[in-house]
Amino acid sequence: MVKSPRLRDSLWMLIAAPTIWSLHFLFSYVTAAVWCAKLAEGASLGGARTAVAMYSAAAIAAIGAVAHYGWRRHCQETRHPHDVPTSHGRQRFLGFAILLLAGLSAVAVVYGALPAAFIASCH
């Protein structure tokens, strides 16, 4: 059975925002760990905090783009409800799920970055 390329794309986009969140967490954690273990002078978290701020800005921008894509997909078929088993309904549902996951991921990215905002020391 040949699947619709559009549907396949939709499923990938569904995990895009949580993937960005997990990458943000991984990069932030590894950066802080390596910084404190190898590079920090006087146990200051300085450089790692800047890096985490940059990762966060990039992650929020990317998640924003995913959310925009989800919103557009959800709204483009306004005539069709998304609770019936049709192709249009599925597209709208997936768009809405992408949007909600993007919102959750954005909050998670902020929470992951908050320690770097409040804590200045490797201690």
């Binding site: 908050l114 320690p115 905002a117 409040f118 804590i119 201690h123």
Partner: peptide
């Protein structure tokens, strides 16, 4: 909670 941490671990 994060605000409390630096104070509780003051060197």
């Amino acid at each position: 909670g994060l605000l409390l941490i630096p104070e509780l671990r003051e060197p």
